[in-house]
Design a binder for these strands. Structure first.
Lengths: 205, 205
DNA sequence: TAGATTGTTAATCGATTAACAATC
DNA sequence: TAGATTGTTAATCGATTAACAATC
């Protein structure tokens, strides 16, 4: 156990472990080892043990880890032992796909608001949501206490919207716009840009 | 200049530099410095210089980097000084969004085929593409010489499709399915899973 | 008990930063 | 020329791996 600051790189791997454990659990497995989990997610057994042991002693010598118990602990650590409301800004193709996405609910998230600044889209339905005007974004997000947002607007609009999200009290932004955004240190950003991801592989092809 | 093996972590940052330089160029800028580029993308000036200098001496003391020249060099290094044909497997919401995505063409990629195994989807149109049967995937991809694929199928189908892609000669897979896949070392995989990305941030909120 | 596997330490390996001579 | 900024070296910092005592 270690109360010091946990490196980002370790936090980054935990969701991958969590996802694999969820699948193991769904398939009826009860226990696993660092060896087995490591092979499944592509990291060394030593690293699995080191990462997990930052937060406590969750395994048993000789038998490994109880999948249910480790799942519970990882969910607590990552704070996804609850459902986070998420705001979606940008109702284009990607926004629609995310609004319809079925993979959030059992992973700790729920889209609850969709915004766009296009007058022709405002008032339209996306799945269960009515598209709201970005003009009201700060007020709506603030009063709903939403801390997480996904950004699917064009690159040219991204920084402006990000500034509003910060102003509204959002602390985590999943940015699909193909541009780096500047936010205060207290706000986390993750980037998803398919072209960038593809360009990380072409070098090796 | 250094002919040794370049670390993955450096290759991973180059597309981000490339993207920022493209924007600088679009806005009419002619030169930049490691300082300026670093602030824009959120890394130290020293790191920008170190990363870029792995591949040659692209800057000039006193004046910095010519944006056009550095763009050209980075595109060469990453092999995106050309257009790569990309196959898309899985014609759900995410597949549709990617098939319509406008952000590939000026970044080195072009979707040219869409596959699904759902009989009710096969033959339907997605943008300019007719959805083809996954049964023909190996043959079609192999004969077209396609080396890059995007995977937007359910987690349960992902490993099976990945195996077929490998068999077809694909060397780079952008995996949107929420599961780790196993492929030979010679095949690169990048993961995009919105829930995983969100879970990397909740710890800090 | 014997076998298996953890948690942890120490050693190794790799990445980042600071600093500065070179030079545009 | 004087000022600015690169490319690179050495120092620092951090992450990964190997190994093994502890113990289920």
């Amino acid at each position: 156990m270690n109360a010091d600051k946990i490196p980002d790189i370790i936090i980054g791997r935990l969701p991958v472990y969590l996802r694999a454990l969820q699948r193991m659990s769904d398939s009826g497995m009860k226990t696993t080892s660092s060896q087995e989990l490591g092979e499944l997610v592509g990291v060394s057994a030593a690293q699995i043990r080191k990462d997990v042991s930052q937060f406590g002693e969750f395994g048993k010598q000789g038998t490994g880890y109880s999948i249910t118990y480790l799942l519970e602990k990882l969910r607590e650590i990552l704070k996804v032992d609850r459902i986070w409301d998420v705001a979606l800004v940008g109702a284009g193709d990607m926004g629609h796909a995310l609004a319809h996405y079925q993979g959030f609910s059992n992973r700790g998230f729920k889209v609850v608001m969709v915004f766009d600044n296009d007058k022709s889209k405002i008032g339209q339905k996306v799945g269960d949501f009515t598209i709201e005007d970005t003009v009201n974004l700060v007020e709506k997000i603030k009063s709903a206490g939403i801390k997480i947002a996904m950004l699917t607007v064009p690159a040219s609009a991204a920084q402006g919207v990000a500034d509003k999200l910060v102003q509204a009290g959002v602390k985590a932004i999943l940015n699909y716009a193909p541009i780096s955004i500047n936010v205060p240190q207290s706000v986390k950003v993750q980037y998803i840009d398919p072209s960038t991801h593809l360009q990380r592989m072409t070098y090796y092809v």
